[in-house]
Design a protein around this nucleic acid. Sequence first.
DNA 1: ATCTTACGACAACACTGTTGACGACGAAAG
DNA 2: CTTTCGTCGTCAACAGTGTTGTCGTAAGAT
Lengths: 246, 246
Amino acid sequence: MRTPSDGSGRVIGVQRRRRPTKTGTVLSHELIVRTAIRLLSQHGTDALSVRRLGTALGADPSSLYRYFRNTDDLVLAIADELIGRAIEGLRPSGNWRDDLRDVGHRLHATYLAHPQVAVLSAARVTRRPNEVRGVEIGLGILRSAGFSPEQAARHYHSFIDLSLGFAALDAAASALPRNHADGDHEAWRSTYARLPSDEYPHITACADALAATMAASAYPAALDLLLDGIAAQLPSGPRESATDDQ
Amino acid sequence: MRTPSDGSGRVIGVQRRRRPTKTGTVLSHELIVRTAIRLLSQHGTDALSVRRLGTALGADPSSLYRYFRNTDDLVLAIADELIGRAIEGLRPSGNWRDDLRDVGHRLHATYLAHPQVAVLSAARVTRRPNEVRGVEIGLGILRSAGFSPEQAARHYHSFIDLSLGFAALDAAASALPRNHADGDHEAWRSTYARLPSDEYPHITACADALAATMAASAYPAALDLLLDGIAAQLPSGPRESATDDQ
DNA sequence: ATCTTACGACAACACTGTTGACGACGAAAG
DNA sequence: CTTTCGTCGTCAACAGTGTTGTCGTAAGAT
């Protein structure tokens, strides 16, 4: 039997034998995940195949199945690695709002730095160490703000899904192949600006504004709105008043 | 040459010859999209392959390339069809808040009704008719509330990305294979509830609350928060119902 | 009735994920 | 040091994938 993982997707036996591959490289979970992320970032979403990853590692593709049960298992490991990079070096300031916004922006930025990776992994629940640590951090921030366990759980849920949802969306938009991406940006000028004004009066009236706003992510604004809403539910009342950006 | 579509992904020549396939069915864009959605909904995300779709239609797989340039083109058509179903029969009440929430809930519900389809299409910008109509509707609602073109565009951006982001996330969660989905729901009880309380004090304190909140989507709550924030920026002040027509 | 040509079918190509079998070699046991 | 053990890298194979070039047939226009 070849069962490198148990039901939860976690690998069972810690690696013991470190036999080098034919080309000399010594495989490991970490190396495989790192190489996969590099492959994705450099050559796009379609570049991640077991075979390509194998040759990139200088190993037979089937070797990877000694480390991951299947491709999905590998994707989950990649997702967890990305979460780990996002929360790495996190320094809570003590101000729950700033801290939560920091976590959100770190997540969003990390995913957008590797859009091809994010497309595969942003919408996945990994249940792996880094994700667990992230949950602990998020809950800790909210509880330190004075929220009850129930409130903390609920608000964490809204916060993390908002952040990952935007990450998935924004990543998908910027992970498109070059010509497509350019087209998508320009679409709001070309396609939407040239619609018949009698049939689409609102679009034509807002065409310039649409092109302007669609160039950037709406995540920061949406996150601040969410934080406003959470602050309004603080048991002790919203201490520092809601931010009025722009 | 086989170029059924122009650069924007839209099909050029309207179908003229309607030669029945070997098994008698007469192909069309609409039939192909409908069949693809049915295939996805019934047999999961992996069930959508050109070959399977071909046999489901009773046609040779390569016939589909007379209607769609490639699989991605087909996916965009599927996405637009889903948008169309979401905004079908929409009845604006005149209350911008209710209307926008209605659009959001319709989108979210439609995507969640076909999670396997949503996984493929929620994060895609189609630039196709139904999406354009959706943009027009959303902008119209916001402008009727009294927002300027700039504000309407910005708020529409936040609104639609929030909605589609949650749709993508929630769809991905419920599109997992049976055993995985159950595991994901149960994960918050099993995995997260059994962590060492000294290392993860907040998770253990919130374990029950986490399991409770994670069972449902956070989208309704997040959407209401967003609408609150938008209402607060109304030019005439956040009035309860800003009903007026243009 | 004839002519185009759209479009469905066929075959082929280069891929993909995954698995069973096999054997080499690192680590533990004597 | 030798011997055993079993992990893990390799090989070969299978069934499946998206996509395209070619070809003939029949639908619609003349």
